[in-house]
Computed example of a mutant assay.
Amino acid sequence: MEHILIVEDEPKIADLLQKYLQNANYHTHWLNTGLGVGEWVRQTQPNLILLDLMLPGKDGLEVCKEIRQFSPIPIIMLTARAEEIDRLLGLELGADDYICKPFSPREVVARVKAVLRRVPLIAADQTQHPPSPNARLLELDRDRLLVRAGEHEALLTLVEFELLATLKQQPGRIFGRDQLMTKVYTDNRIVSDRTIDSHIKKLRKKLSEILPDQELIHSVYSVGYKFEA
């Protein structure tokens, strides 16, 4: 049974989320403060975290940043502040999704299912295309959301992993931003071009840390991106 951590300081909201998630056959745990979340995650390793933005002790942005230092566990941010949406998408901190309050608990369950489905979908896609010599520079570890090059490795978020997996499957092929959005956001939401651009920027930075002499993801002006060693 998959384990969902709920970090929410409002008991009524937390209780509602727990009931709906448990009815969907998820095991849940609730924390009502941002303090101690990182240590709890290290020890317990949940499958996904529902993380409120406004928390006592340490806010959700700080908690997300802390967790991303050591874990790729999917994080869905809960927020009543619409102006934070771009940041919560992971442009700066690595969150995998966001939900604005007030929300339907059924929507939350649907988003949780969608995010947890992404990793298996990546694996299925990778089996359809044999790796090329260029693609063999990198090894993708789906279970741990890691990318390796020799003895070096980098931890990716779900979105970053999906982007890299999609580009790497067909080296040299140019993917438009709309195509990448469809691959990454399987629930057909609408996101801006700069969302993909920002994820690609972060992904490039991580790849440069393990392969400093290689530029693997190339921009194609006014079109999109391609993977090529």
Rank of each mutant, 00 (worst) to 15 (best):
T157K: 06
L31D: 12
P171E: 01
S192W: 07
V159Y: 11
V159K: 07
L116K: 08
V115A: 07
V220H: 08
E215Y: 14
V108N: 06
I49N: 05
A95V: 01
L164Q: 01
T28L: 04
K12C: 13
A82W: 13
V109A: 10
D178M: 15
R173Y: 08
Q18I: 03
R117V: 08
L21W: 10
R111S: 08
L140M: 14
V63K: 02
Q179D: 10
A135N: 01
L5K: 11
T186S: 11
Q43R: 09
W30I: 11
G38Q: 07
R118K: 08
L121Y: 09
Q214V: 07
I85F: 03
V220L: 04
Q22F: 12
Q69K: 09
Q18K: 14
P133W: 11
R177K: 14
N32M: 15
K206L: 15
D9M: 15
P212N: 10
T127R: 15
L17M: 07
E209Q: 09
L50W: 05
P131Q: 06
S104H: 06
E10I: 05
P11Y: 11
V159G: 09
D143S: 13
E10C: 03
E209A: 15
D187N: 10
I210F: 07
L88T: 01
R117E: 11
K168M: 10
S104D: 11
P130N: 09
L88V: 01
K113G: 08
I73H: 01
S198A: 06
I75S: 03
L93M: 07
G38I: 00
T44M: 04
S104Y: 04
I99L: 03
T182R: 08
E39S: 00
T166R: 09
R42P: 03
A149T: 01
R117Y: 07
L78A: 04
A110G: 11
L146P: 05
A154R: 01
T182Q: 15
N25T: 15
I122R: 09
R111I: 01
S208I: 15
G172C: 06
G36A: 08
D193T: 11
P120N: 02
A123N: 12
P120A: 05
W30L: 11
G90T: 00
E228M: 07
R136T: 12
V37D: 00
I13H: 10
A114E: 12
Q170N: 10
G94R: 02
D52A: 02
R189T: 04
I210S: 02
A114N: 14
L216W: 00
P72I: 03
V7N: 00
I76R: 04
